[in-house]
């Protein structure tokens, strides 16, 4: 780590500390009623209490599970479907109008439909999360497969590569930067929809916790939940960055 990087890290840390400090000052001065805004001290205490009682653990695990399952389902279906559509010009022409119709559909509008089909169940949440988070990934994958260098397909023909080898050794790695970028966007959407589904269907998770806390005016618990959701978003994004760096290490310098 160079000196400049250390300095930047220290500054960003200082900004975060200053923000928490300001929050404490505002809370202490009671500029906002403590019923609605707890200080960081009370939020932290609620966090510790929640984990000690095990209740918050269960909620955290619930949300992580919703997010991960929905995201994985979206990833598997999105990559497979994207590969199929992206590698055929005819398929792109046939399917594109349908996709353009479905894509801007807000996932929240799909929730009543999913509830009617599946009831207030985990299956409903899984479908909604997967449906909502598949789009960035699907479109990125289609683009990635459509943009494979045609010369590489000729190389594959000249070398006599099998059909499967062309997909797994040429097309998939070539599309991987797009796929990874799409998966990163999908992950964010999956977290949002997990919270929404938990709120609407009363499924075990931080969304439900946050909603109940707000209704009961337990602002410290509410903030504890929000802080955890922020931490999930931050840590999963960091994890994606690390995974991206590993998978795309060939892009290295110059790109």
């Amino acid at each position: 780590m160079t000196a400049a990087v250390v300095v930047w890290r220290l500054i960003s840390l200082a900004v975060a500390v200053a923000f928490v400090g300001l929050w404490q000052v505002v809370a202490n001065a009671k500029l906002v009623s403590p019923v609605f805004l707890p200080g960081p001290d009370r939020a932290w205490a609620a966090l510790v209490r929640g984990f000690a009682g095990g209740e918050l653990w269960a909620k955290l695990v619930g949300t992580l599970q919703h997010m991960a399952l929905g995201w994985l389902l979206a990833s598997v279906v999105g990559i497979a479907l994207g590969a199929l559509i992206g590698s055929s010009r005819a398929m792109r022409a046939y399917v594109a109008p349908t996709l353009e119709f479905l894509r801007p559909l807000p996932a929240s509008a799909v929730i009543p439909v999913a509830i009617a089909l599946f009831g207030l169940t985990e299956a409903m949440a899984l479908c909604v999360i997967a449906f909502g988070s598949i789009w960035p990934l699907l479109l990125a994958t289609i683009h990635g497969f459509a943009a494979v260098e045609p010369r590489l397909y000729e190389v594959a023909r000249a070398l006599g590569l099998s059909r499967a080898a062309v997909i797994f050794k040429i097309a998939l790695p070539s599309a991987s930067p797009d796929i990874v970028a799409g998966m990163r966007l999908s992950l964010t959407v999956a977290l949002i929809l997990s919270v929404v589904c938990e709120m609407l269907a009363g499924l075990d998770g931080l969304g439900h916790w946050v909603l109940l806390s707000a209704r009961a005016f337990r602002s410290a618990d509410l903030f504890a939940g929000v802080i955890l959701l922020g931490a999930i978003g931050y840590l999963t994004a960091q994890g994606m960055t690390a995974a991206e760096r590993y998978v795309l290490k060939w892009r290295g310098q110059g790109h």
């Binding site: 010369r151 590489l152 000729e154 190389v155 050794k169 790695p173 070539s174 060939w250």
Partner: peptide, 11 residues
């Protein structure tokens, strides 16, 4: 091929 940059697998 002439365009070696396109004919090699960059990954």
């Amino acid at each position: 091929f002439q365009d070696y940059g396109k004919a090699l697998l960059p990954w």
